[in-house]
Design a protein around this nucleic acid. Structure first.
Lengths: 166, 166
DNA sequence: ATAATAATGTTGTAATTGCAACATGTAATT
DNA sequence: AATTACATGTTGCAATTACAACATTATTAT
């Protein structure tokens, strides 16, 4: 039996027509549409002065200190220009500071999360968890582990086959 | 043993700190960042006159004929304004036509895919499959089915707990 | 009958995005 | 030494997005 699991996701025999619209990739994209809207609405209602994307950058900085802008770019998967713009906003709001330093012999802008920034992360996380709690209610622990494993595989293979400018 | 699978994804004991940055939700979002860039680059190189989002709308129309704009909105998860804008472009390019008709007693704009539009979908699909082939190389059929099932659960539960204006 | 609500489509907008292009400095190659 | 390639950050931009607000018509509640 030959399957075309590639785009379709549904097991279809080789000569049948496939639809991108029904593919697993697109199902995942639609799931993310919802989760991004949910995340954005959450931070709007939270009124702590950051958007979800600004928060993600802060959260990445919370445990990855002593990194420069490009390193953060790689973590949050945004290009250097947009990462810089996010950091400008976070700096204006006092959640981070930036300082020109050397990395090897290279001049870079290193980023430091402030106490105010740390507080924001620490206060937001439990509320965020609460908001997303019910999303995983129907998902078993085993399914959860499976999901993480498969997503890691997909992300790895996509990162190898996609040219992204960071 | 108590797990907080909610945001973390990694099995963490209750009182440990959790990071959104390491959550499964965010892993999925990052995976989608790659797949969207890959899809966009694919259609840029294909030079058939449509973007990935315009193609998705066409693909949805290919098998869902006789629908109005709002119905398409629900399928492609874009709000009415943006769906209308995409359709304007597709109409200008001759891939669809629109006609004011009645749905029950309500006046709506029904969408009809043209032969040119059908051709575009039929020609693109095999190439698209080829481009995304390697992405799933390391994923077994079983994992693939798991992924689809879990994503469907997540999408369903997110759609219930997220207010989206369509 | 009247008012309130829902369905459908459009216009306007601020925010975000990926990308191209640039500037500046370092490393590698010739 | 000269040239080429890479690393890092910035500016500009066209495209896309979600959302608010509006217009119109139909449905429902009062």
């Amino acid at each position: 039996m030959l399957y075309n699991n590639i785009i379709d996701g549904i097991c279809m025999k080789e000569n049948e027509k496939t639809r991108y619209f029904d593919s697993v990739i697109y199902l995942m994209e639609q799931t993310v549409v919802y989760s991004k809207i949910k995340g954005a609405q959450f931070f709007t209602q939270l009124c702590m002065g950051v958007t979800i994307d600004q928060f993600v950058a802060l959260d990445a900085l919370y445990c990855n200190s002593d990194i420069c802008q490009r390193d953060l770019s790689k973590l949050i998967l945004k290009d250097r220009s947009n990462t810089g713009r996010i950091l400008t906003i976070l700096e204006e709001k006092g959640f981070i500071t930036r300082a020109a330093e050397t990395k090897g012999k290279r001049l870079v802008k290193k980023i430091y999360i402030t106490d105010k920034g740390k507080e924001l992360v620490e206060e937001s996380i439990p509320k965020l968890r609460k908001a997303f709690f019910q999303v995983f209610e129907e998902v078993t622990d085993e399914e959860f582990d499976n999901l993480r494993n498969i997503l890691n595989k997909l992300k790895t293979s996509l990162s190898k086959t996609t040219s992204i400018q960071i």
